Amino acid sequence: MKLLILFVSTLLFGTADLTGIRQQYLNAAKSAQVTQDLYDSLKDVSDSSSENTLVAYKAAALTLRAKHEKGMLTKKKLFTQGAKLLEAVIERDADNYEARLIRLSIQENAPKITGYNKKIAEDKTFIIRNYKAQKSDLKEYTQGFVKVSASITKEDKAAFN
């Protein structure tokens, strides 16, 4: 049923709805199939699309695909491709709150060997500073992330109430 809704929304709106994409992203780390479904729903989004949030989720899907791959070279290729795409999104749209939230979640969960953890403090500060200006659905989504975040301290969590 979920796939049918995703398919219909893709036909009607060109891409899947952001709420559905967010939910898939939350579940993707646990399942190779959900990760592939997330990527499939975003693969037609152009890397240079003005829909920067969707491009950021596409980048995240690439990094998550790396997690579920078996070969080290394929893992590295997918992760690097996703990280570069996400960095490009943030470079062209530095104030994109959701892209920064995605990057923070990836950095927290990326294997240390990738070296993809240099902007955790920057993203955390950005998220805290800009949280109150977000719409309620994105605030709720952020609160879910904050509950499980390794970089958001107990003191920082007060900013998300």
Rank of each mutant, 00 (worst) to 15 (best):
E140W: 04
N27Q: 12
K112P: 08
L42K: 02
A121H: 10
A94E: 09
S136Q: 13
L62Q: 02
D37V: 04
A133S: 07
Q107H: 05
F79A: 03
N52C: 07
D44I: 15
E108S: 00
A66L: 03
S9D: 12
F13R: 12
L26G: 06
I21L: 04
I127A: 00
T63D: 01
S105E: 02
T114S: 11
D93N: 13
S105A: 08
D123N: 12
L11G: 10
V8M: 13
K75P: 02
L73I: 15
G82N: 03
S48C: 13
A16M: 07
V148A: 06
E108M: 03
A88G: 09
F7R: 12
L73G: 14
Q23R: 12
T74N: 05
K147R: 10
Y116M: 00
G20M: 02
S46C: 09
T80I: 08
D17G: 14
S31I: 07
T142K: 01
N117S: 09
E69Q: 10
F7P: 02
A94K: 14
N161A: 13
T10P: 10
T114E: 08
L62R: 01
L101M: 06
Q36A: 06
T80M: 05
T125N: 14
M1W: 02
T80E: 06
K75E: 00
D44Y: 15
L11V: 12
D137C: 08
E87D: 15
K119Y: 12
L62K: 04
V8C: 12
E87W: 02
K154F: 12
A28S: 05
S48G: 15
G82F: 01
K139N: 03
E122R: 12
D40V: 06
F13Q: 10
K119C: 03
G115C: 02
L38I: 05
A88D: 14
R65E: 01
Q107E: 09
L54A: 07
G71T: 11
E140S: 06
K30T: 08
F7S: 10
K70T: 15
Q143W: 07
L11S: 07
F13A: 10
T80P: 02
K70A: 14
K84M: 15
D17S: 13
R129V: 00
K124E: 04
K139I: 03
E98S: 12
K43T: 11
D123I: 05
T142N: 01
T15C: 09
N161S: 14
A88K: 15
L73P: 11
T15I: 09
Q36P: 01
L138D: 13
G71P: 07
K67P: 00
A83H: 05
L54R: 10
E108A: 01
L86P: 07
A99W: 05
T63F: 02
A88C: 08
Y116I: 03
I120K: 05
V89H: 09
T10V: 11
T142D: 04
R129I: 00
K157W: 12
T74C: 01
F79K: 00
R100F: 00
G71C: 08
A28R: 00
E91D: 12
N109G: 00
M72P: 13
K2N: 13
Y25R: 04
Y39F: 15
I113Y: 14
E51V: 09
L138W: 06
A29N: 01
A83V: 05
A60R: 00
L64Q: 08
S48K: 15
L86F: 14
Q24R: 09
L12F: 15
T142M: 02
K132M: 04
A88M: 10
K147C: 08
I127P: 00
K157L: 13
I102K: 11
N27E: 13
